[in-house]
Amino acid sequence: MEWQSDILGPGFQSSAFEAVGRDGIRRRATLVRFTPDALDAQDPRPSAPRRAVLFLHGWSDYFFNVELARFWDGEGFEFFALDMHNHGRSLQPGTHGGYVADLGNYDAEIGTAVSMITDSGGGGPVQLVLMGHSTGGLVAALWASRNPGAVSHLVLNSPWLEMHRSALVRRAAWTMVEPIARLRPEAVLRLPERGFYWRSISNSADGEWTLDDAYRPPLAFPVRAAWLSAILAGQAKVARGLEIQVPVLVLLSAASENGMVWNEEMRRTDAVLDVNTIAARAVSLGRSVTVERIDGALHDVFLSRAAVRDDAYGRLARWIRGYAT
């Protein structure tokens, strides 16, 4: 394991690695870590039982939120983020950005990242929080369900647990997509392109965040048949109940705005998911689920305007101190 200076600058390092999936295919992923001790050698982290968080980004995305890393560090957690295969720092020439044919194909790289986190502290025990956003939230929930005991807490930021409106929409989509996914898994589905969420967060448009368009394109990567089939299959598993045994926090906007034309409400709502449907589906995750609805929040609640982020971080801190201390 070799750590390099990361694109986020001082205080961040990254390590690229390969993991072999259950299908025998070797895939490249990249683990990022926040190293505040390198910024302030006079104020090292006090000796204490290790606590860490591993963050999984959403689809067609990558890790860039320095503020999120600093928050977790302030709560006494080592911060790590994984750019999963075919995303962000892990993109390779000639591959389809964002593509995965089975969400279980992420399992090997997540497991390897967890081992790297453990090894980075000398191999001793670590209390690990798994955090995921959007599609990364769906992946995180499924991984936690398949790997009981691997994590101590699960934090989901607008997880894509269900399709818009209801399970009926998911089942209808499945009947249309599955035959294509079987015959032509990499076929691009011609769906409406909406760059409204990107517009609300990127400082190249109306947002405040600096994004690398090669890593997080304005209109997202092309939607391919097997990728959508994998999402629908994962959501069906959530609907049947995951029985996650550790405490789960789900953070959501208070409202959605999913129209086909831009309107100003998209600056203070989730312009990607149906948050009411997600909130209802969240109870299928496990036995101890907390749902926080945040007024004015965007799809990624931690990319919302400053006052809304403060509210979201306050709610997350309260939950951490109640469940993870």
Rank of each mutant, 00 (worst) to 15 (best):
1 M>G: 13
1 M>V: 14
2 E>M: 11
7 I>G: 00
14 S>I: 06
20 V>Y: 04
22 R>Y: 05
23 D>V: 10
25 I>G: 03
26 R>F: 03
28 R>M: 03
31 L>C: 02
34 F>K: 12
39 L>F: 04
40 D>P: 07
41 A>M: 11
43 D>L: 11
44 P>C: 10
49 P>S: 09
49 P>Y: 14
50 R>H: 12
51 R>S: 13
54 L>Q: 08
56 L>V: 05
57 H>I: 05
63 F>G: 05
66 V>L: 11
66 V>I: 12
70 R>W: 10
72 W>N: 04
72 W>L: 09
73 D>I: 07
76 G>V: 05
76 G>L: 01
78 E>K: 07
79 F>V: 06
89 R>M: 09
90 S>Y: 04
90 S>Q: 06
93 P>V: 05
95 T>Y: 09
96 H>R: 15
97 G>S: 08
99 Y>V: 08
100 V>D: 05
100 V>N: 08
103 L>G: 02
111 G>A: 11
112 T>L: 13
120 S>G: 12
121 G>I: 10
123 G>F: 07
124 G>Y: 08
129 V>H: 06
130 L>N: 06
132 G>N: 03
135 T>V: 11
143 W>C: 06
146 R>G: 02
147 N>W: 05
151 V>R: 00
156 L>S: 00
170 R>I: 01
176 M>A: 15
179 P>F: 02
182 R>Y: 08
183 L>P: 09
186 E>S: 14
189 L>S: 09
190 R>F: 10
193 E>T: 15
194 R>W: 09
197 Y>P: 04
197 Y>H: 12
201 I>L: 07
201 I>K: 03
201 I>Q: 01
206 D>C: 10
208 E>T: 11
215 Y>F: 15
223 V>D: 08
223 V>Y: 08
226 A>K: 10
229 S>H: 12
229 S>K: 13
232 L>P: 06
247 P>N: 03
248 V>Y: 02
251 L>T: 09
253 S>P: 00
253 S>C: 07
255 A>Q: 12
257 E>C: 15
258 N>W: 02
258 N>T: 15
258 N>Q: 14
261 V>E: 15
261 V>M: 13
261 V>P: 00
267 R>H: 14
269 T>W: 03
269 T>D: 10
270 D>K: 04
272 V>F: 06
274 D>L: 04
281 R>L: 06
285 L>Q: 02
296 G>H: 08
300 D>A: 09
300 D>G: 03
301 V>F: 02
305 R>C: 05
312 A>C: 10
314 G>Y: 09
322 G>N: 12
325 T>V: 14
